[in-house]
């Protein structure tokens, strides 16, 4: 038997979120002695990474009809491979691509699904998966009752494990029909790490007083190798682009390190960041609610504190 895992690519490189899904599949396969079969639509540049994350094989689906992101057709392609392999478990990332494809696949496969898993399946009594619910305020253990199953993996939530697999490649041609969506424009963010995949994030809020003061935030992010983010008022006032807005209505993230500068920590903001592993809060107001959720705090003026932090990280990097 095999476990199927879908991988998204950008310019032929497998996305980090997808590699995590491969790792999830590989760690699940280990306990049940199964093979991990990755599926990509189009060519993947290098097999080394896939092997290291635990894929045994890669099936590259070639189809003339998928030259843009077509969730309906990709789901169909995955289902064809699932049938060919006789598999009953499919793993995807709970990234934006996985969120588009997985629900369609669930209907195709007639599979029960848990999305946003934060732990490996527990097979001790059926098939149970843990996921975050209530926007990070609790966890639920959910059993999949159907024979076919789909799990999507929350980015940056699974411990990685190194495998030494060699990934064999096969090309498969599948006729999938005509796409019903015509993509007319694509705006892919520059080479920077996209915010939802970033392991470190430096974020700032209204406390910075104006968009002209963001240089020190960018400097700190650059020195740490972090992505930048902001609170909702900052995006609403157009101080920063909307795609940087983290929180309940913006992007939900769970980096290893989240540094919040001049953000008070409204509950809507916390809902988007409360699953970060380490939270640092810098605020002039010692009563700011964010300190209750913080691991480390500095009560002080960002304009004095942040430049000193930039210098300290520079010295560390030197």
């Amino acid at each position: 038997m095999s476990i199927i895992v879908y991988v998204s690519t950008k310019g032929g490189d497998v996305l980090k979120s997808s590699l995590e899904a491969v790792s999830y599949a590989a760690q699940t396969a280990e306990t049940s002695n199964q093979e991990v079969v990755a599926i990509s639509v189009g060519k993947v540049n290098s097999m080394d990474e896939l092997g290291k994350y635990g894929a045994n094989r890669l099936i590259q689906v070639q189809s003339s009809s998928i030259s843009s992101f077509q969730p309906n057709l990709i789901a169909k392609a995955i289902h064809e491979i699932v049938k060919m392999e006789g598999s009953n478990l499919c793993i995807l990332s709970h990234d934006l691509n996985g969120k588009a494809i997985a629900p369609i696949l669930s209907v195709e496969m007639n599979a029960g699904m848990v999305t946003g898993a934060v732990g490996l399946p527990d097979n001790s009594d059926g098939f149970m998966v843990r996921k975050g619910v209530f926007s990070g305020k609790a966890f639920a253990n959910i059993k999949i009752l159907s024979e076919n199953k789909i799990v999507t993996v929350m980015p940056n939530s699974i411990e990685k494990k190194e495998f030494k697999n060699t990934t064999n490649v096969e090309d498969v041609d599948i006729e999938l029909g005509t796409p019903r969506i015509t993509v007319i424009d694509q705006k892919i963010a520059s080479t920077d790490v996209p915010l939802p995949e970033a392991e470190k994030v430096v974020s700032a809020g209204r406390g910075l007083k104006g968009p002209e003061n963001w240089q020190m935030v960018e400097d700190l992010a650059k020195e740490l190798g972090a992505a930048t983010a902001c609170s909702r008022p900052v995006a609403d006032m157009d101080w920063r682009p909307h795609h940087e807005h983290v929180g309940q209505t913006g992007v939900a993230i769970r980096p290893n390190l989240y540094i919040a500068i001049g953000i008070s920590g409204a509950i809507q903001h916390l809902a988007g960041v409360n699953q970060s592993k380490v939270i640092v809060v810098i605020n002039t107001d010692k009563e700011a609610p964010f300190f209750k959720s913080a691991d480390y705090g500095i009560v002080g003026d960002a304009f004095e504190v942040v430049p000193k932090l930039v210098e300290a990280v520079k010295r560390l990097n030197a």
Binding site: A111, G112, M113, V114, M128, V133, G136, K137, A138, F139, A140, N141, I142, K143, I144, L145, S146, V281, F291, K292, S293, A294, D295, Y296, G297, I298, V299
Partner: peptide, 18 residues
């Protein structure tokens, strides 16, 4: 197709270190 078996609250956050 699925059943919620139970819920857990996340472990309480330790004190903020200033």
């Amino acid at each position: 197709m699925t059943e919620i078996v139970g819920y857990e609250l996340p472990p309480a956050k330790g004190e903020c270190r200033f």
